[in-house]
Design a protein around this nucleic acid. Structure first.
Lengths: 353, 353
DNA sequence: GTGAAAGCGCTAACAC
DNA sequence: GTGTTAGCGCTTTCAC
């Protein structure tokens, strides 16, 4: 490869550096740096000339070099278990929006519901020297040493949605208990007395809490808790049909079903429809979380909407607060209010919306 | 803050550096570097000791510093117009998977269908010194200077899905022409003669191509092209109903509708159902792209599935190929085969699946 | 107000 | 086989 010895500001393949700008004007690199970073103690004329030269030469600061000696990247790492899921897509949208407005960069990592990848993600993000991490754990995650390692290094972490409350981080969750309670109480108000619940992995905090909400609603209304009606699954898509079959095969099949993940409710409804079961009169449905499928499916699904975008917005704000205030920051938790949306999947005859 | 002057390998807040590892063992930093990078010319024992020490001290290489002097970040930037869209979510999944297997890091930027943000995204990625960029343009993008700037600097770019073929980059697209042709021909085979098409922005390449496919199918079967049946929209969600109203308000309303984005087809079907229009007998529907909503909606939607995950996988492979072979690489285009999936939304009475 | 120089953490020539 | 040293591009003291 041959190197031109003529100054060739515009055509060189190597990116323009601060040195090029300095040479171009015959000033020192520190002067250029000062001008570009809006420091005081610089002659306005020099400053203007430098800024103009930077534009003319199409100089772009090297982010790597800047971060390396500032010790801060102004970047936030986000770990998402499943970007394909509408809930997480909306959370991400909220995060991105606030990041844009506050000048933070975002690196999104996708754990793909795998504990192993989640751990790798945390290592990647640490290697990238992100200023903070937002994380929702994979379904498989029951060990949290990888998070402890991060917080011990003084890197702020905020857990959202799927949190482990024993970690010393800020958290943001929705009203899992209340949402489940409201959904189940609504089913009861529609005349359901044998309410099945399709839950996720036993160890997942949100599943535990939602089942507690379910139980509390039954108890409030004097309905006995029957463990046959409580089914744990992997909340993968596709499991709904099998679990519906289990339910309708029971001696006393449920007359209402509460799904801890809305998409499973849809799957079960689809299977039920194909078997000729009348929804909601023979079997009513309700699920946690709203999305377009819940709205468009026939019948549309009664849900507890937990405002995922808002969760994302609040999560990143909490994180930035922590980043700006590392020394004396006490982690805290926030709970976002949701709302019950009643649709046809649960409205039995004689009821009106 | 007080600083301990005892060596405290595990508890220090400042990340362990290569210097710490070197001091710990009393060797030089270059020896450590060699050991950790698996270079030859190093004593096995020293190497083992260094690797062990690195583990014990929980040393993690500083990615910024590594990249800074290697001049390569081993990171790929991905620009996505809309992560919430199932198509892009699946493309992303494909990209991520290959990235994981090849050791590339991914930075995902979300242009949110905004030209302005898309340009900012490219600048961010250049500032991060990514090794290459995968991009699908926003709906608004009709100017491509920001991409030219990148390729002129010698950074490989691959455009996927929404491409501009005048740029000197590799591209990957689906069979837009053939897909549209097949869908429309299928509608014709079901007896449709007045086929409406809901398209997106006029300037978008994929819209142009799909409309060409639509026209070709009509021509092949001797059906006249009627511009009243061709409607351009912004393909935002929510526009479907309005456009359905336009169609059914025509003097000679269509008996079949082809939507260039499947979700718009669903919206139109929903609106049509609410008006008591019989699908598919009075009005048949077909749309480009498969997803869960198309499968679960009642009636399920006939689609051309373009295998988004595969598109993501191929796109990143093409990019990596280009990165590894910068000097003598000639951009090329690839077209991914799709498949027609016939469902009830278009199967008129008397036909059978 | 500006320049020289040190250093962020690392790699890779170059010595020995 | 290992150590010394010069940078990667930038910011930030410290001189002048």
């Amino acid at each position: 490869m041959l190197k031109s010895n003529q100054p060739q500001p515009t055509k060189s393949n190597n990116p323009i550096t601060i040195v090029d700008v300095a040479n171009f004007l015959g000033v020192s690199i520190s002067t250029v740096s000062r001008a570009l970073n809006n420091k005081s103690d610089i002659n306005q004329k020099t400053k203007d000339a430098i800024i103009q030269a930077a534009i003319d030469l199409d100089y772009k600061p090297n982010f790597l070099a800047q971060s390396l000696n500032k010790g801060s990247t102004h970047t936030i790492g986000v770990i998402v278990p499943d970007v394909g899921h509408p809930f997480f897509a909306s959370v991400l949208a909220g995060i991105q929006q606030v990041a844009n407005n506050t000048g933070y960069r975002i690196i999104v990592c996708h754990s793909n519901e795998s504990y192993r990848i989640e751990v790798l993600n945390t290592e990647t993000l640490m290697a990238c020297r992100v200023d903070g991490i937002l994380i929702s754990h994979s379904k498989e995650t029951t060990e949290f040493d990888h998070i402890k390692k991060i917080t011990e290094k003084g890197i702020p972490v905020v857990q959202y949605d799927r949190v482990n409350s024993e970690l010393n981080t800020s958290n943001i969750i929705h009203q899992d208990f209340k949402g489940a309670f409201n959904l189940v109480e609504h089913l009861i108000s529609q005349g359901c007395r044998r309410i099945g619940v399709m839950s996720g992995p036993k160890e997942m905090q949100i599943c535990k809490t939602r089942i507690e909400g379910y139980k509390a609603a039954l108890q409030k209304h004097g309905i006995e808790i029957n463990n046959d009606y409580i089914v744990h699954s992997n909340i993968s898509y596709g499991e709904g049909e099998q679990i519906l079959n289990y339910f309708i095969g029971l001696e006393n099949p449920p007359d209402g079903i509460f799904a801890i993940v809305n998409r499973n409710a849809i799957e079960m409804m689809k299977a039920a429809k194909e078997k000729g079961i009348k929804i909601p009169d023979e079997l009513a449905f309700a699920g946690f979380g709203d999305d377009i499928l819940a709205q468009y499916f026939e019948p549309p699904l009664t849900v507890y909407n937990h405002f995922p975008t808002r969760i994302g917005e609040i999560a990143i704000r909490m994180l930035i607060e922590n980043i700006n205030n590392k020394s004396n920051f006490n982690p805290y938790s926030k709970i976002v209010e949701g709302e019950l949306i009643i649709r046809k999947s649960s409205l039995k005859k004689g009821s009106c919306l």
